[in-house]
Write a protein that binds this DNA or RNA. Structure first.
Lengths: 120, 120
DNA sequence: AAGGGCAGTTACCTCCTGGATACCGAGGCC
DNA sequence: GGCCTCGGTATCCAGGAGGTAACTGCCCTT
């Protein structure tokens, strides 16, 4: 098993786009969760690190939602040392495409978005 | 001035995707409003036709939100016959791109989305 | 002058989301 | 046995999103 980088705690620290963007993926945290799962399965408490404001209940809600939507899978390993792991399903992985497209749009028009927000 | 097609009242009648999709653009009606403005300016009461469930208050809210975001412009014509018209700004028009990409993704994975929804 | 469309506004209500806080059971470590 | 971490639940609460119903002011037509 290849050892992935741990998720940096400040991953989403700077001006969180979610609050500005004119679109949302799933509930408040869904898009960030998907981003966190981009390069492999992650564990519950591992996911809380970059979203350090989110309480377990809220993360559970978001994950259950993604699970119901078929975007994320939850696997409880037989070996308890491995715990519970969340991963993107095929469908979930395919969502990275529109997600990236949305992020690209946002990046491209970031200044205009800020301007509009400031003017109002 | 070229005469555009009036908006068909049943434009969004069939199983509204917004309720199923794992993403949202702006508030509940924003994406549909943007679609309605795709081929030219529309008037307030004209917009209410395809969204025939929406009350004036709610439509106003949505439009004001889009206006604040710089996606939609509101122009009050000097000639009162022309009334008030809403149109996409440059920025708003540029959002059609990610919006289409999202719709394309949804269309492509529609069955999987329905399956996931049904299984839960 | 009376009525009707247009473009909203206002007051009020309900439900849902997101968050705070506290608690819990299972398993590992000392 | 006592404590830690992991992976959650249970309960309560505030704010906002969305909806209903009623009302307004303006202009136009008849």
């Amino acid at each position: 098993m290849t050892r992935r980088q741990p998720l940096p705690p400040d991953m989403f620290d700077e001006l969180c786009p979610s609050s500005l963007l004119p679109f949302r993926f799933g509930d408040k945290w869904a898009a960030l969760v998907i981003r966190c799962l981009e390069d492999g399965p992650r564990r519950f408490s591992e996911l809380r690190v970059p979203l350090h404001r989110v309480t377990p209940k809220v993360l559970t809600q978001s994950l259950r939602g993604l699970e119901r939507g078929g975007l994320v899978s939850r696997t409880v390993h037989a070996d308890p040392k491995l715990g519970v792991e969340y991963a993107l399903t095929q469908l979930g992985r395919s969502m990275l495409e529109p997600l990236d497209s949305a992020c690209a749009w946002a990046a491209e028009h970031w200044d205009e978005l800020l301007d509009a927000r400031d003017r109002s």
